[in-house]
């Protein structure tokens, strides 16, 4: 995407107060920042607010920008911290704020063994099926959701994800696997129920 030299010169121009550089930075990075916020918060207005806050914070503290991580990763870290502040506020109902209380490394044994991997394509494309995907993601505990969003939806590397979330690469791997297994379980329940329902009405 952006090579290092371009990013470096962009961050230097922002540091020098160049407004065109700030606009350029927003143009390049705001879509991904918004998606991260939206998928973590499940609410468009709040995701918009987080996107604004992220760039405000970033431009204000550009002097503390550490080159090592890269501009994109640094922006994601700021965004994620803003997301966390909102998730920790009381009285949230739209998404799960469940923290991981059990053993971090515990991998649950799959329960639902209905084989739904190879249904007709149309089965996966219904509005209902898409809504179920979104619901299942929203219901994941926030720590698993964050890793799944960054790794599987935004395609960040394990290392980038670890830097953004300030956790170890091992924790990223374990949480990604747990997130995928939990989503698989949810979707397996959904498709098993759906196919059953259809059989009954035949």
């Amino acid at each position: 995407m952006n090579d290092h030299a371009t990013e470096q010169s962009l961050s230097e121009r922002i540091r020098a107060g160049d407004k065109a550089a700030c606009a350029e930075c927003i143009e390049i990075h705001s879509p991904a920042i918004y998606r991260l916020a939206l998928r973590m918060l499940g609410n468009q207005a709040e995701a918009e607010d987080v996107t604004q806050e992220t760039f405000l914070n970033a431009f204000k503290s550009i002097d503390t920008f550490e080159w090592r991580a890269g501009l994109q990763t640094w922006l994601h870290r700021i965004a994620y911290n803003n997301v966390l502040m909102r998730l920790r506020k009381p009285r949230r109902e739209t998404v799960s704020v469940q923290v991981l209380t059990e053993n971090e490394g515990l991998i649950e044994t799959p329960r639902q063994l209905f084989d739904w991997c190879c249904l007709p394509e149309a089965e996966y494309a219904t509005t209902e099926a898409r809504a179920e995907l979104a619901r299942a993601l929203n219901d994941l505990p926030e720590k698993l959701r964050a890793v799944f969003v960054l790794r599987d939806l935004e395609e960040h590397s394990t290392e980038e994800t670890a830097t953004i979330l300030a956790i170890s690469t091992e924790a990223v791997k374990t949480r990604l696997h747990r997130a995928r297994l939990a989503l698989r379980e949810r979707l397996a329940d959904y498709y098993a129920e759906r196919i059953n329902r259809r059989e009954e009405t035949k």
Partner: peptide
């Protein structure tokens, strides 16, 4: 198979 499908769908 279903784990792979889950990742693909998302």
């Amino acid at each position: 198979d279903t784990l792979r499908k889950t990742v693909l769908l998302y």
